[in-house]
Design a protein around this nucleic acid. Structure first.
Lengths: 192, 192
DNA sequence: ACCATACATGTATCTCCATACATGTTCTAG
DNA sequence: CTAGAACATGTATGGAGATACATGTATGGT
């Protein structure tokens, strides 16, 4: 169900068509949720059925049609209700830590190589999220600027800080994983 | 595919039947992977088909049959190969951070309540994993004891430390999330 | 004029997982 | 001896998501 709320959250900033949403959810500077377009288009139609969003057909050129979706009042309400509700924690299921659990069964070199890849991935995430966080604090992202248009200026700073802080959270988690990977590399080489 | 490797990893310690595995994967002191029995039994049959494990039928009483599965050489090989290979990082998809992104749209009280629940969950995980980590270091868990029987005593300490370290990793991540939640509570109340 | 790239939106299939339904047997404590 | 807990193993259904297949139009540069 979270994809629906992710879409609502983006559409709360401004109306978008499926293609724009697809670019957003498949984009390299990763956000907090991702999805392929094959999931996005059907979900948008479902959400329109449910009255959470409204589609407006537009024409580019002579034949190309695109549907621009805006969030409805019901959609806003649903997003707020979902955001304010406790949801059961997802089951613990971490493929990387599972892999790490069996490092004692393989060569140190192979384990070290897997760790280094993980480390690089986490650092990549830290960099991307860090850039996004800074942009939010500077109120310099497309979406945030759109969002703030419908909010009282007195709240702008607070909103920017709250949004940026979420990415600080993602960064903190990635950093914990990166630090752990570094420590693992030490432990692996330490006692041969 | 990870459930298969999780099962292989457990069966590497000692043979088990579906019921034992079910208790293990549904257990409260959570491990790194979880699954319901409705997923475990069919997967075990699949894995037997694939030659990764071998089932031995046993009889309890007069009628109750249970099938005890042991890992095969093919299974061990597969587990080692999987453990030593880089796997693409899973897509970023964090429902809790998604929720947190919209905290500026709801009452502070409701946001704070969601944060407190999350904080409690993370602390629960930290406690459970912490206990498990200590038990591993003391070589005082059922599975680890079984596992070590087939390893040279000189390696026991190293193996215990490596396994325990994985749970230290999970704890580090949970701690990062908990710290972040605490910080969020401060930020929320700070600037009303 | 043409070609590559971006725009735009689908369908099909398969695996994984959540949840619920379903059916026994064996053991243990009172 | 009997009831409840633990043992033991399934099936059914549906949603979410990964991946591949599929089909066009519009635009900008050469």
């Amino acid at each position: 169900m979270s994809l629906q709320h992710a879409l609502l959250g983006v559409l709360e900033a401004r109306p978008m068509n499926g293609y724009e949403l697809t670019r957003f959810f498949e984009a390299a500077p990763r956000w907090v949720w991702s999805a392929p377009h094959s999931q996005i288009y059907p979900t948008l139609r479902q959400m329109e059925q449910a009255g959470l969003i409204e589609g407006q057909k537009e024409i580019r050129g002579t034949k190309l049609t695109r549907t621009v979706y805006s969030i409805t009042d019901r959609g806003l309400e649903e997003l707020r209700a979902w955001t304010g509700t406790d949801h059961a924690a997802p089951p613990v299921r971490d493929a990387f830590f599972l892999q790490a659990l069996f490092f004692d069964m393989i060569d140190q070199d192979r384990a070290a190589s897997v760790l280094k890849t993980h480390l690089a991935e986490q650092e990549q995430l830290i960099a991307e999220w860090g850039a996004h966080r800074d942009a939010l604090l500077a109120k310099d992202t497309d979406l945030l600027k759109e969002r703030l248009k419908s909010r009282p200026p007195a709240e702008h700073d607070r909103i920017a800080r709250l949004k940026a802080h979420v990415f600080a959270g993602q960064i903190a988690v990635a950093r914990a994983r990166a630090d752990w990977a570094r420590e693992s590399l030490r432990i692996l080489s330490e006692d041969t």
